[in-house]
Simulated assay, not measured.
Amino acid sequence: MYIRETGNADGPVLLLVHGGGVAGWMWKAQIDNFGARFRVLVPDLPGHDHSRDVPFTTSAAVVAELAALLKRLPAGTDVTVVGFSLGAQLALELAASHPELVTRVVVTSALTGGIPLPSLSHGLVRLTAPLARQTWFAKLQAKSLYIPDDLLDDYLRTSKNLPVESLVALTRENADFRTPPAWPAFPGAALLLAGAKEPRSLREGMRRLDQEHPRSELIIHENAGHGLPLRYPEWFNTRVEDWIRADLT
């Protein structure tokens, strides 16, 4: 799995985990904002962009690889894991299953209760996957995700090159994901972010995450849909930065 490393090599670590169908480039505004103070690690998940030749199989396999990455850091390294959508599910699982590696976690727009009729959904994904290679369709998808104009070419490249089998696998994993049983025992702090215009099931799941964790803070952006870090990057960066600073003091 491709990992981009940038920012302040001597700073605390910020691991940014993107959502399905995009790639590490989605964090451009966050890299620009946090790079002076943080050592920023940005993977392209299997099947995506620079990792397109690595098949996406299961979320568990990705979490294991991310954990192996963090285990290579010096003992005691301060690590904040930030995830969006599918990446937020991975961040949740990483924090819950490897609490010794994660100091704190930012969970943005994670679906935690599954979706109805998952087998039908997987079939539709397989049938419609060729559309993602059509520029007109990809542009419609980009608009729904709030992809800014300066990142549109990155999205079109990623979308056109995402293998069908990886797309089906990540869709299955996203639909089947449930909150890890060990989540309430994660000892670190948790910041939970979502948009008020996201699906009700997602918002309810985020509220349950907040209720289940003793050190969590839930913030809902009243105008945001599914794409909060891309649509409102300054708002997102400010909330994350202020929260990390408060946790460090």
Rank of each mutant, 00 (worst) to 15 (best):
S59I: 01
P74M: 03
P214N: 00
A196G: 13
E93R: 15
R172P: 02
E5C: 07
H98N: 14
P199K: 10
R52M: 02
M1E: 03
S201L: 14
M1K: 02
D53K: 14
A185S: 14
A189R: 15
A60H: 11
H50K: 10
I220H: 06
A88G: 09
G11P: 06
P148F: 07
S97Q: 13
K160A: 15
L248I: 10
Y146S: 14
A175T: 11
W243E: 05
L86S: 12
D49I: 02
M206E: 09
T103L: 10
R172N: 07
L202M: 13
A68L: 04
V82H: 06
G24L: 00
S119D: 15
H98V: 07
P46W: 02
R178E: 10
D247P: 12
A64E: 15
G24V: 00
V62T: 07
V240Q: 06
R72S: 12
F177W: 13
R245F: 10
L94S: 02
R37K: 11
A75V: 15
P181D: 04
R215K: 15
E204S: 14
A175W: 10
D78V: 12
Y155Q: 05
A95C: 06
D154W: 05
P163M: 01
A96E: 03
R215Y: 10
G227A: 06
G87M: 08
G24S: 00
H122Y: 14
R178Y: 11
P187S: 05
R104T: 03
L131M: 03
L156E: 00
A194W: 06
I219S: 09
F34T: 04
V107S: 07
G225L: 02
S51F: 01
I220Y: 08
K143E: 08
G114P: 13
I219N: 10
R126V: 00
D150G: 03
S109P: 12
T80P: 02
G19Y: 07
T158Y: 12
G83F: 04
Y146N: 09
P55Q: 11
S216V: 02
R178Q: 14
S109I: 14
D53H: 15
Y2E: 11
H122P: 09
F34E: 00
E100H: 04
R178L: 12
A96C: 09
S201K: 14
G227R: 06
L66A: 08
P116Y: 02
L167S: 13
E173R: 11
A246L: 13
L120H: 08
P12V: 06
D78T: 15
R133N: 05
G47K: 01
G21C: 07
S51H: 00
I31A: 07
G76P: 09
L170M: 15
N223H: 14
V62D: 06
L66N: 08
E212T: 09
G35C: 01
E241Y: 11
G24A: 01
K143A: 13
W183G: 03
D247L: 15
F38Q: 04
R172D: 05
V125I: 15
V63P: 03
A246K: 15
